[in-house]
């Protein structure tokens, strides 16, 4: 029990409340803020458009696959947990463990993309395309833009897993790993806002 508590403490990140530099560095956090603002504006535009197109939105939401979106939310949250565990393992110097967690997170990213492609194929099978109406134009814009971010994050996770294997990321210097993890978690954050607004409301 005591050892477990000690492990938990050692995997926790250092307290940086006195420093302006967040985990991963300033640049990645400026990017996070910019992305949240961009997606936030898109989400507000999506909701704003509902005012003049209520019937279209109601019809559109009925055509969305809520089960796939729910599964995708669980997949992304699980990937976020994997990556947080990977960073903890790296800080403890457990490189093999850190690499395994990172690859597991990467696989959740691939699963998310696969499920999203299934959803897009279902829409295409129903003849629903980009530009179909306001609802589906904004749906494709927002989810498609997010899809690209997850795709980039999956590539980044692959690079991180490789860098851990080659010894470029280690317990003493892991800012690149932290920055990659922050980008990956940013995809979670954005999806957590998109999911209820597009699928559940």
């Amino acid at each position: 029990m005591k050892n477990q508590r000690h492990d938990d403490m050692s995997t926790a990140c250092q307290d940086r409340s006195d420093s302006w530099e967040p985990p991963g560095g300033l640049l990645i956090w400026l990017l996070v803020m910019l992305e949240v603002v961009t997606f936030g504006a898109g989400i507000l535009a999506f909701v704003w458009q509902e005012r003049g197109n209520a019937a279209e939105y109601e019809q559109g939401r009925l055509l969305l696959n809520q089960n796939l979106a729910f599964a995708n939310t669980l997949v992304l949250l699980t990937g976020g947990w994997f990556m947080a565990c990977g960073l903890g393992a790296l800080r403890k110097g457990e490189k093999l463990c850190a690499r395994s967690w990172t690859i597991a997170a990467l696989l959740t990213g691939v699963l998310f993309l696969a499920l999203k492609l299934i959803e897009y194929r279902q829409k295409a099978a129903h003849g629903i395309q980009f530009g179909e109406d306001t609802f589906f134009t904004l749906y494709y814009l927002l989810t498609g833009f997010h899809f690209v971010h997850v795709l980039v994050a999956v590539v980044l996770l692959g690079v991180l897993a490789r860098s851990v294997r080659l010894g470029h990321s280690h317990a003493g210097d892991h800012q690149n790993f932290e920055a990659g993890a922050v980008f990956w978690h940013m995809c979670d954050l954005i999806w957590l806002l998109l999911y209820p607004v597009i699928y559940l409301l």
Binding site: A12, C13, Q14, D15, R16, S17, D18, S19, W20, P22, P23, L77, G80, W81, M83, A84, A181, V182, H185, M186, D188, L189, L192, L193
Partner: peptide
Amino acid sequence: KFTLVAGWFMELRRTH
């Protein structure tokens, strides 16, 4: 959920 992911997974709770 957003706050929990940012605070715990992104470690925002320990930043400035």
